[in-house]
């Protein structure tokens, strides 16, 4: 504990490990970028002081309870599976070596988001953030607020039902990897949207736009699109791994109204799927080589005389 009575310089060039509660005194002076490691269950109180170094969470399933909003100038290192509850944690990047859950709102003011283990907390980008490699988002609300976001070569995995409000940034690759409902509070932009596992439901008042929609399922799957909402594919629509056996289904959320899939004129279409209540009138015709087409516009099943291995128009 550093109380407000301490006016010296707390020079943390090295790591300090706390096996319990941490309290920073208001207005205390720090130097250094050392790591504050919090083990076990702990209550963390910042009193408005910015920790100038790294904050690491260790001890599997340790519960960290924030007593107020926290800000750190280093990264948040989730080294062991942790729960972080209450208030907000503003950090300069996050390393997800283990999963993080809880009610604390994680805000990235910069830095790098890396590591494949999932964040389930609400997560906001509010600065120049780099997504590095494969990262995973679970339940919660992901929001882009400001900053230049670097995504080259990265993958944003979604493995739980979540809400996304990310207009203003463009992902490189978005992959739903488990059955989930993805609620969009604004238009989602991504170079690629891909999936090969689970059933994905797109909900909310906005759709998405991508260059490549690539569904590589080898078993049956259903993808549901919100009725009346447009989903745009600019370059290529691929869903061709299910020639034999169960078929992928794309359908509207409504039993009466259509959802809108617009495959841009000139785009490649390579699809084996069922379609139900999809309006594709805004772009080129979507042609499927197998499956059923029910109550759709500008989607046809091709029954002509093509070679057995024909996949692409």
């Amino acid at each position: 504990m550093i109380t407000s009575g301490y006016t010296g310089i707390f020079n943390h060039g090295q790591t300090i490990v706390a096996n319990g509660n941490v309290t920073l005194g208001a207005n205390f002076v720090q130097a250094g970028t050392g790591q504050l490691t919090v083990a076990g269950n702990a209550t963390l109180t910042s009193n408005g002081v910015i920790w100038t170094g790294i904050l690491a969470l260790i001890t599997t399933n340790g519960i960290k309870t924030l007593a107020d909003d926290w800000e750190i100038n280093g990264l948040l290192n989730v080294a062991n599976t942790a729960v972080m509850n209450g208030f907000s944690m503003k950090a300069n990047g996050v390393t997800m070596t283990s999963a993080l859950t809880g009610s604390t709102h994680v805000i990235l003011k910069g830095g790098i988001w890396s590591g494949t283990l999932a964040i389930s907390n609400n997560l906001t980008f509010d600065g120049n953030v780099t997504i590095s490699g494969i990262v995973t988002y679970n339940t919660g609300t992901f929001k882009y607020l400001s900053g230049s976001i670097t995504v080259t070569g990265s993958t944003f995995q979604i493995n739980g039902s979540c809400t996304i409000d990310a207009t203003g940034m463009t992902f490189d690759r978005v992959i739903p990897i488990l059955t989930a409902t993805i609620t969009l509070l604004s238009k989602l932009d991504s170079n690629r949207i891909e999936s090969n596992l689970g059933n994905t439901t797109f909900a909310g008042a906005y759709g998405w736009e991508c260059n490549l929609l690539n569904w590589t399922f080898t078993t049956g799957s259903t993808t549901i699109f919100q009725e009346g909402i447009e989903y745009k594919i600019n370059t290529q629509f691929t869903c061709n791994q299910t020639r034999i056996g169960a078929t992928v289904t794309f359908r509207s959320s409504s039993g009466t109204n259509k959802a809108i899939i617009t495959l841009k004129n000139g785009a490649i279409c390579s699809v084996l799927a069922n379609f139900t209540r999809i309006d594709a009138s805004g772009g080129r015709t979507i042609t499927t080589f197998i499956g059923t087409v029910t109550d759709c516009i500008n989607i046809i099943r091709y029954d002509g005389n093509l070679p057995d291995n024909a996949l692409t128009f």
Binding site: M1, I2, G8, I9, F10, N11, H12, G13, Q14, T15, I16, V17, A18, N19, G20, N21, V22, T23, G32, G34, L36
Partner: peptide, 13 residues
């Protein structure tokens, strides 16, 4: 002034 020159481990901080 206090200077961390090596890792220090405590119970409460």
């Amino acid at each position: 002034q206090m200077t961390m020159v090596a890792t220090g481990t405590v119970y409460h901080f």
